[in-house]
């Protein structure tokens, strides 16, 4: 067995978490609350060392110029408005930095939706037959075009569906089921890896039952 205190602590905490698989119990709840506390502390330290000191503190105490100081000061004041909800009368001020962040993200996502999603993906769909030589490649290209359009159509609720359009939506459902099956198949290897990692740790690093 391992002689490292750290490995023992990690192993016991892991087993405490796994005790939930039998039923919820105080040992599991202790481990859960330790995780909450440590995760919160981690986040605070990360933001303090990696954002607050290099960006805020250095931007105000050691600015590159007047303009730089102005912008850093302005955004710091706006960011402090996130704390406004703790004073009920001025709680609404927290909406100001939130609105700026939402507007920024919306503007950037609007451009990205057209530049990085719509155009390249539509282009790749309509050029699917380019360079397709031989029956299998042509069939693949046809499946891609039919699949893409029927799935987009399946999610479109703007107009009334006639029997023909219902048929198209049905084709979309067939493709969706295949797609979800593929997602599930890949999810299995992903989830199993997480458990294999814990088993390798418990039975390898801790108990030394698994050869390294």
């Amino acid at each position: 067995m391992s002689t490292s205190i750290g490995v023992w602590v990690a192993a016991l905490l892991t087993l405490a978490m796994f005790s939930f698989l039998y039923r919820e119990n105080p040992v599991y709840r202790v481990a859960e609350h330790i995780l909450v506390g440590v995760a919160s502390g981690y986040t605070v330290l990360l933001m303090y060392y990696r954002v607050f000191i290099p960006v805020v503190w250095n931007g105000i105490a050691h600015p590159k110029g007047v303009e730089s100081f102005f912008w850093t000061f302005l955004f710091t004041v706006l960011a402090l408005l996130f704390l406004a909800p703790f004073v009920p009368r001025i709680g609404w001020l927290a909406r100001i930095p939130a609105a700026i962040a939402v507007g920024y993200a919306a503007g950037q996502e609007l451009i990205a939706a057209v530049q990085a999603r719509l155009f390249p993906q539509l282009l790749d769909t309509v050029t699917a037959f380019d360079g397709a030589s031989g029956a299998p490649a042509v069939i693949d290209a046809l499946l891609i075009v039919v699949g893409t359009l029927s799935v987009v159509f399946y999610f479109t609720m703007t107009f009334r569906r006639t029997p023909v359009l219902n048929g198209v939506a049905r084709v979309g459902v067939v493709f969706l089921m295949i797609g979800f099956g593929a997602v599930f198949g890949n999810m299995v290897i992903s989830r199993f890896t997480l458990l294999i990692g814990r088993i390798e740790f418990l039975f390898g690093d801790w108990i030394h039952l698994i050869p390294s």
């Binding site: 458990l195 294999i196 088993i199 390798e200 698994i210 050869p211």
Partner: peptide, 11 residues
């Protein structure tokens, strides 16, 4: 069963 199978595989 899941744990036993994975342990056998790891060994």
């Amino acid at each position: 069963v899941v744990v036993v199978v994975m342990l056998v595989g790891a060994i």
